[in-house]
Design a binder for these strands. Structure first.
Length: 436
RNA sequence: GCCGUCAUAGCUCAGUCGGUAGAGCGCCCGCCUGUUAAGCGGAUGGUCGCAGGUUCAAGUCCUGCUGACGGCGCCA
């Protein structure tokens, strides 16, 4: 409850998106000043809230003296409450405006530091204010729906959400760089994947997923990397790699369907075809690593068999695909120790987004044999003691199982074709930015 | 870790051959009753990233440093 000009207001009961259905009615707008144009005794205030923007026309003859002064003094991003009648008017942006009979300033916003031509760096320095932009607002709505759709999918398919630890004693994937931290006299690390702990959880819940931040201490300076990202990971007992890919494509297609049908307006504002997402089928093409190598070579980019696909290779490989697709059966030497192997190959698949937006999912069937895991850990120079708990999972009722990790920001970036992955993040963390 | 670019007003930038620091926008003041990131007039605004060097004179040339941005590698 708060008081504006002697009126007690208990809650907001009008959102700007509903203006068109409320033409002719009196409403109370609560929001922030988005734009302002003064014309002497007439002031146009464009207000925004979480749902949209609308023009408020404030005429001196229609409001009292304090109200007019408030409209005159309300700076960009000042918080305001206004009352008036919703009217159709083709002179107003969007064709609807509110003709105000009351206008009050809730809190001023002198010298808001963002204007039209503010550059990337300056915006990142004041991300806590820049996230008010309608662009960020829309991106975060998409991200929210992506996560909701993912949870819906898992729920419908018999998964349980679990909450693995973020504080870890050892690496999840050998070689990757970890953020160390002081933990009561010993060194702990921020999790770079929940996978190992999810593997433990399947012996209780069989099909599990988690949504956690993951951390990578690589000084990656690219449009595809963050040091902290939102990670959806799934792990399934009694599930081979084929089964794994079915879950992955089902999940991604179902997320795309949901976003396509719920947010056609936002997709189109970002230049995307809503129908493409709404109608996406959970049937993604599968190619092998060997086929990928041939395609890349055929396109004139030489790559030797046995090498991992770098960004240039991914870009060339993905440019002709319309939908996301799997690349399967990478040579075992370029993949992680925990993947099941078959001959010289890892039993794995990465899901690549089209048009060079990069890997969205990395997944594999996991090695379920105790001895083979011990051998690989030793070969990589790891301390077996650190992994004893993980090895125990193969000692007590081991089962074939598979799992995957999906990068939420990468998926959102691909859906909206965002320039940079940090645009898909409220407070992006990169090697050079941990503030604000 | 590697390669490259950049750093001048609150923001976006210009600054020629080394010769007293500029513009647009914003903020502030004034005018304006239908604007569409309005328009017109006025005013304000600077440790030229930091340190050193060359020179009568450095935003400009040289050296070092710092920071950010762009790209590679690593990955989701």
């Amino acid at each position: 409850m708060f008081v504006v000009r002697d009126k007690v207001i208990h809650m907001k009961d009008f959102y700007i998106k509903d203006a068109r259905e409320r033409v002719g009615e009196e409403v109370t707008i609560m929001g922030w000043v988005y734009r302002k144009r003064r014309h002497g005794k007439l002031i146009f205030v464009v207000a925004r809230d979480s749902t949209g923007i609308i023009q408020l026309s404030v005429k001196k003859q229609n409001v009292d003296e304090n109200g007019f002064a408030a409209a005159r003094d309300a700076d960009i991003e000042a918080s305001i409450v206004a009352h008036g009648t919703v009217a159709e008017d083709e002179r107003a942006p969007g064709g609807v405006e509110v003709r105000c009979d009351e206008f009050a300033l809730v809190s001023p916003a002198p010298d808001f530091p963002i204007q039209e031509d503010t550059g990337t760096e300056a915006l990142l320095d004041i991300r806590h204010l820049a996230l008010r932009s309608t662009k960020t607002q829309k991106i975060m709505k998409i991200k929210s729906s992506v996560i909701q759709a993912a949870r819906d999918y898992f729920d419908k398919h018999g998964f349980h959400e679990v909450f693995p630890p973020i504080l870890m004693s050892v690496a999840g994937e050998g070689g990757s760089t970890l953020f160390p931290l002081e933990y009561f006299g010993q060194t702990a690390y921020l999790s770079q994947t929940a996978q190992l702990h999810l593997e433990a959880a399947i012996f209780s819940l069989e099909n599990v997923y988690s949504l956690t931040p993951s951390f990578r201490a690589e000084k990656s300076r690219t449009r595809r990397h963050l040091t902290e990202f939102s990670h959806i990971e799934g792990e399934m007992a009694w599930c081979d790699e084929e089964c794994n890919e079915k879950v992955e494509e089902g999940l991604v297609a179902s997320i795309c369907n949901a976003v396509g049908s719920r947010h056609a307006d936002i997709l189109e504002e970002f230049g995307q075809d809503a129908a493409y997402f709404r109608d996406m089928e959970p049937k993604f093409e599968r190619i092998t690593y060997d086929e990928a190598i041939s395609i890349i070579n055929a396109k004139g980019l030489p790559i030797e068999f046995g090498n991992d696909l770098g960004y240039e290779e991914e870009k060339v490989l993905t440019e002709d695909f319309e939908h996301p697709f799997f690349v399967k059966n990478f040579p075992k030497d370029i993949k992680a120790f925990y993947m099941k192997q078959k001959g010289d190959r890892a039993v794995c698949a990465d899901l690549e987004a089209p048009a060079g937006y990069g890997e969205i999912i990395g997944g594999s069937q996991r090695e379920d044999d105790y001895q083979l895991l011990v051998e690989r850990l030793l070969k990589e120079g790891e301390e077996i003691d650190n992994y004893q708990w993980y090895l125990d999972l193969r000692k007590y009722g081991s089962v074939p199982h598979s799992g995957f990790g999906l990068g939420i920001e990468r998926l959102v970036r691909w859906i909206l074709k965002l320039e940079h992955i940090r645009d898909a993040c409220l407070f992006p963390r990169t090697p050079s930015r941990i503030y604000p």
